[in-house]
Design a protein around this nucleic acid. Structure first.
Length: 518
RNA sequence: GCUCCCAUCGUCUAGUCAGGUCAGGACGCCAGGUUUUCAUCCUGGUAACAGGGGUUCAAAUCCCCUUGGGAGUACCA
């Protein structure tokens, strides 16, 4: 039995439509990934649709490869779009440059209804006004007051306007902010917001190159694509009044808005930027990116060894919390738990340490088998080294707890693969005594008698030898570790010897004795 | 400067909307325990309601001011 109420709810939620609308000007910042993630979680939870729209209205900022980067990044993260430049959909095209001719009609509509006007001020002129205002510690804004003295259709006869346009004079179309009103807005995260219209400026809607600006294209497309919820970064909050006014001018229903708090630098203040990553040594991009112009490479979470699930999990908890003490969430669990009400209002400083911790959690959750396979692949590509699956499995089982990333296994496992090339001086000083060479040789002879060289057999032999000779465990084991490992680290010695085998163990002991003699 | 937003441990945060548990958890850090070393692990500890005023029997929680922080202020998104 399905109740009417749940049917209504189902009907409503099927119509939930959200979009992520990046500009293809470079790699996607992790803040952008988080915004997309929240959109995705919100949509999936509601059974709605997630749309990818490319906002490429600024032809001068186009960066080759950026679009591909964005899609690859989301694929890696496990964020799937229902509609977009790749997926298609009945509200396309999903690239604004391909919608170019659709915007002119809407501009015309605004012009006719008196909500917009032509402006002929050149970029240079405006620049001069801004600079002049700046020296007076003022801000130049194109608004109620200043527009009366500027070069626009509000101050001209219709005939003059027509002539200028006919002559090919470059112009833009500006939105006419209404005078003396208060714009009332509602944000799902912040609540009611109110702004006086005279503090707003007459933003350009249509550029002289025939392309719409973000503001116009965004409203038109969100309307045409039937977007129900606009979830975007807080940097857009100051333009919300304009957008609200635009919807009103068109006479359209507004989507609901949610402005997400920003991701901040780990230290100091300010928005997280690419520079911070370089400076503090952590990636700010999901994937590695090579700038086609400068050739400069920026590191990515994927290339740094993060698991996509760990990355997504970490990002989700930065600004949102489930209200419980659970910290590890699969994508499905995130979808289930997510709600906009539990998104915080204040910015979050990004903590690289916690990011690593998340990866560690995901790593130790995997089976030894899975990690071993990843490590074998890593060894092959990074070290041109092949080891058997059996050996890799054993090593991984012994040391996985100590690493946060697969690539870190190497440092913890090198002694399983190579004999020590040097011996830690501090340990030599503390643990290598005059009697050590004879003791170790005697122990080696004992180990030589073991036929089945397993960890337990080795342990047993070593222990009985220590007891028989009335020696201390600490002194013997540490000296032995010095010969086998070369440093005061690593797992249980019996395990190490089993993995490297009898021949190698004995050879290391004897070579070590020899090396430490001189 | 102006407009808007925000404010709990070093960091992420619970608690704020419907005032009333020693302000809870996690990361980090420190100490102890386990161990043949290191790491893990276990136990414990460190540490916060920005300040001031109000309202109230009672304020982290509601109101105001101050301070601090952030964003925006383009023919960029």
């Amino acid at each position: 039995m399905v109740s009417l109420q749940s049917k209504i709810q189902e009907f409503m939620s099927e119509n939930i439509r959200v979009r992520f609308a990046p500009s293809p000007t470079g790699p996607l910042h992790i803040g952008g990934v988080r915004t997309a993630l929240y959109n995705y979680l919100f949509a999936k939870k509601a059974g709605g649709k997630m749309i990818l729209r490319i906002e490429d209205t600024d032809q001068t900022r186009f960066v080759p490869g950026a679009e591909q980067y964005i899609m690859e990044a989301f694929k890696w993260c496990g964020i799937q779009f229902d509609e977009g430049i790749n997926e298609g959909g009945k509200y396309g095209p999903y690239r604004q440059s391909e919608r170019k001719n659709m915007y002119a009609d809407y501009v015309e509509q605004l012009l006719k209804s008196g909500n917009a006007y032509y402006a002929f001020d050149t970029a240079e002129e405006l620049d001069t006004y801004r600079k002049a205002a700046d020296t007076d510690k003022q801000t130049f804004i194109y608004n109620t007051e200043s527009r009366k003295k500027l070069h626009n259709s509000l101050n001209m006869s219709e005939a003059d306007v027509k002539k200028l346009i006919a002559d090919g004079t470059p112009y833009v179309v500006r939105f006419l902010i209404p005078e003396n009103t208060s714009v009332e807005m509602k944000d799902l995260i912040r609540g009611e917001i109110s702004v006086k219209s005279e503090t707003l400026d007459d933003k350009v809607l249509y550029k002289s190159d025939g392309m719409p600006t973000y503001h116009l294209a965004n409203i038109v497309d969100d309307h045409l694509m039937k977007i129900t919820h606009v979830i975007r970064g807080e940097e857009w909050l100051p333009s919300l009044p304009l957008h609200v006014l635009l919807y009103q001018a068109f006479g359209w229903n507004m989507p609901q808005f949610a402005h997400l708090p920003l991701l901040l630098k780990p230290d100091g203040n300010g928005k997280l930027s690419k520079r911070d990553g370089d400076r503090l040594g952590f990636p700010v991009f999901p994937l590695q990116w090579k700038d086609p112009k400068s050739g400069e490479t920026s590191s990515g979470y994927r290339e740094n060894g993060y698991y996509p699930a760990a990355f997504v999990n970490m990002l989700a908890l930065l600004g949102w919390n489930p209200g419980s003490e659970q910290e590890i969430f699969s994508m499905d669990e995130l979808i289930e738990a997510f709600s906009l009400e539990r998104v915080g209002k204040s910015g979050s400083k990004f903590d690289p340490e916690k990011a690593k911790w998340f990866n560690h959690q995901y790593l130790i959750k995997k089976t030894d088998q899975e990690i071993a396979e990843e490590w074998i692949a890593w060894l092959k590509s990074e070290k041109q080294l092949e080891i058997t699956a059996d050996k890799a499995l054993k090593i991984v089982g012994l040391i996985k707890e100590r690493v946060q990333f697969v690539h870190e296994l190497w440092n913890e496992a090198i002694f399983f693969i190579e004999a020590p090339e040097s011996y830690d001086e501090k340990v030599v000083k503390k643990r290598w005594k005059a009697e050590s060479p004879n003791q170790m040789e005697s122990l080696a002879q004992q180990l030589e008698t073991i036929t089945d060289f397993t960890a337990s057999a080795v342990d047993e032999k070593v222990k009985s030898w220590i007891t028989d000779n009335e020696l201390s465990m600490g002194a013997v084991m540490n000296a032995l570790r010095l010969l086998l490992v070369g440093a005061p680290k690593g797992p249980h010695l019996g395990d190490i010897m089993e993995v490297i085998g009898k021949t190698e163990s004995l050879s290391r002991i004897r070579e070590g004795i020899h090396a430490l003699q001189s």
